[in-house]
């Protein structure tokens, strides 16, 4: 078994006095991808924000490429190659599309040489190649894009740092099914290129079609963790997903 890219052990975090994520373990090899599923409020967004460094770990530990990053801030983690495409896309509306991309290109890298101006330009060109629509709109405001375009910009921005782990929080939220399919087509392409990914979805067969592993969160705890091929049947999955109290309704 290869050395894991990301390894999270016993992660606990929350807001104020309330723990929101409790005792979650997660391990991801280079090029592997995970779907984080769960109902609204299960702690998915909190978990990926914590992995990105936006929330402190209350307990537990986290390593990335063998380095302990438990206490590192989001800035340090970004320079190490962890990239989060946040919930709600969070496009900088006062910046142009191109500026949004440029800000994504973090200048320095730990254990890797800093991205040179040439590299940044190369990545920019690569983004425009991948998303022609962004090239068209590059001098327009980031806030003038449609939802799908914003999602593409958010992913393109996250890719500008040439990350080794891309986390995407609800990529299909608020998008028309056809647009969501385009976004997932893109994610599949990124996976083929060997990028490790964590994809957060409330519930999506699309996500399951993309990933290798699946983790279901409920009430902040990991209630199921399995390779996609070994997932239980739909009814059981639903039961795990929603909790046992509703299982009778499902089976009856």
């Amino acid at each position: 078994m290869p050395e894991p890219l990301l390894s999270v052990h016993g992660l606990v975090t929350g807001y104020g006095p309330n723990a929101v994520v409790e005792q979650v373990d997660l391990s991801l090899c280079p090029g592997e991808s995970v779907a984080l599923l769960g109902v609204n409020g299960a702690g998915k967004t909190t978990l990926v924000s914590t992995i990105a460094g936006l929330n402190p770990l209350w307990s537990g530990s986290m390593t990335f490429r063998g380095d302990t990053v438990t206490k590192a801030g989001p800035e340090a983690r970004a320079t190490m190659g962890i990239s989060l495409c946040p919930e709600g896309r969070q496009i900088f509306t006062s910046l142009t599309v191109e500026e949004n991309l440029l800000i994504g290109a973090t200048p320095s890298r730990r254990r890797r040489p800093a991205a040179t101006a040439a590299q940044v330009q190369e990545r920019l060109a690569r983004s425009y190649e991948r998303f022609p629509i962004l090239k068209e709109r590059r001098h327009g405001g980031g806030g003038q894009l449609s939802g799908g375009e914003q999602q593409m910009l958010a992913i393109a921005r996250a890719l500008m740092s040439a990350p080794e782990l891309l986390m995407v929080d609800e990529p299909s939220m608020g998008l028309a099914p056809a647009v969501a399919s385009t976004v997932y087509g893109l994610l599949r392409e990124l996976k083929r290129e060997g990028l490790a990914m964590i994809v957060v979805e409330e519930s999506s067969n699309r996500a399951l079609g993309l990933v290798d592993q699946c983790i279901v969160l409920r009430g902040g705890r990991s209630v199921l963790s399995a390779p996609v091929g070994e997932l239980p049947d739909h009814a059981t999955l639903l039961e795990v997903y929603l909790g046992s109290s509703t299982s009778e309704e499902v089976t009856s």
């Binding site: 807001y15 104020g16 006095p17 309330n18 929101v20 609204n40 409020g41 702690g43 967004t45 909190t46």
Partner: peptide
């Protein structure tokens, strides 16, 4: 900091 929702 004491306020806050599960998923902001």
């Amino acid at each position: 900091a004491e306020r806050g929702d599960a998923e902001p």
